[in-house]
Every structure is written in C-alpha cells, then in structure tokens.
Design a protein around this nucleic acid. Structure first.
Lengths: 107, 107
DNA sequence: TGCGTAGTTGCGTCATTGTGCAAATGCTAG
DNA sequence: CTAGCATTTGCACAATGACGCAACTACGCA
C-alpha cells in the first residue's frame, strides 16, 4: 500500500512541472509539446515521462513516430483517496496516550 | 499545490517504513521506539523523522529528554484528497483529442 | 532510396542524499 | 556537581539520480 515508488516518481521538481503541464492541458500530448513546458533537454523530458508512466502516473500511446502521454487521473486520484482513508483509519482523532516500549509489535 | 516536497519526503523506503510503523501504532512514539522498526542506525532514524516533520507529515513534541513523533493523519489525508480532487477536475474523463502545437499556453 | 522529424539510449559529469560512526547536546536523577 | 540516558550533529563515504550532448533508432514523405 504505502509504496515509495509512486512518491519517488512525484518527488522531482521537473517531473512535477511536466505533470502539472500535462494535467492543465487535459489531453494527450506529444513529448515535444510537453518539452516546451520546461527548460531541460528533450532527452531529459523523454526519460522523465517514461519514468512517470512506469510509476503508473501517466498513460503512453504511440501513433506513428509521435508518442502521446496523458495523466491517468482516475487511477491516480483513486490511489490517493485510498491512501487518505487508510491513514485516517490507522490514526483516529482520539489518539492513545504516548507509551514506552515498542512502537508497534509487528514491524 | 503540486509540491514535490511532500512526495520527496515520502519517496524513501526507510521513511515509508517508519511512517507505516508510526501509523500502525496510532499513538505518539519516541525516537528510540520507532528505531526498532527498521535496521538502520538511530541517528538515521532521527534525521528521517525530522525530515518528515519538516514536510508536515509528522508532528513532534518534546517531553523531557524524549521526543515524540505522531502522524498528522488529518492534514495529510486532507492534502491527499484535495490533490485527488484537483487531478480529476483538471483531467475529465471525456478527454479532448490529442493535438499538436503547445501542450498548454501557460507553462 | 534518401532525407527530415520524433523520440530514445549511451555515456560522462555533477549534485544530492542515505548511511554509520563518533562526538556533542540536552535533560533528569541522585 | 556528576552520572547516565535520549537524541542530535559533524564528518566521511558510497549510492543514487538528474542533466546535457551526441549518436542512434523509428517512422513518414518525396
């Protein structure tokens, strides 16, 4: 559930810029288009987009020689909400008092 | 809104382990307690916990010479849900067709 | 078949970051 | 004041990751 992979993918400023650009656009965009959003090399953009796709954040589709990327908004939003639910389930508002010994038995 | 800082903080396996342990415990825990959750040095745990607190993930409180950390579940869950909402607002299900030119005008 | 465009990959470099050990700090108790 | 425990900080080292450039592949078009 708490997978560092997704967060790792979202933890880079350049990737966040690309993701924001793509989200704002709201449609599948080619690599070259997206690259105009930030000042880094096209090859860097290509690598970042693939990484985001591998992490499940983006969806990639090829048409001829151009590759389109789009935000997988639905699944991503679902994962974030599930995470939020699980967090609140684990840590209720009426919290137990601080204790000593082991933090939790299982880890 | 889309701040890489939070994701960066959550993007490390050791930090996720600590966070999961702390969430499962459901109460404020001392640094020494939490350190039993994973195999790294105590100093490393201390650094990770501070980093998570700086990112707004954890809450720290000092009592005597022991420092207690607890998950800020409410604010964190809220931030995740807001992010999910924004994502779905930006990228509706009936997506526009792929186009050419600039991805989006503003970035 | 030859050329131009779109994107990817290899490689070297540099900055960041995770880690452990040892020393230092902060606080409590005797 | 001294001893001792909980945590933090300094330092060095190794691993990771972002970046740019250049070479390469893949595809469409004349």
């Amino acid at each position: 559930m708490l997978d560092p992979g997704l967060f790792k993918a979202l933890g880079d400023p350049t990737r966040i810029t690309l993701l924001a650009c793509l989200a704002k656009c709201g449609r599948p965009c080619a690599v070259g288009e997206i690259a105009q959003c930030c000042a880094v090399d096209l090859s860097v953009v290509s690598r970042h987009l693939r990484l985001l796709a591998d992490a499940g954040v983006l969806d990639s589709s090829k048409s001829g020689r151009t590759v389109f990327y789009a935000v997988r908004a639905g699944p991503l939003a679902g994962a974030l909400r599930r995470l939020a639910d699980e967090l609140e389930r684990c840590c209720p508002a009426d919290r137990r008092a601080p204790g000593s010994g082991r933090c939790c038995g299982s880890c």
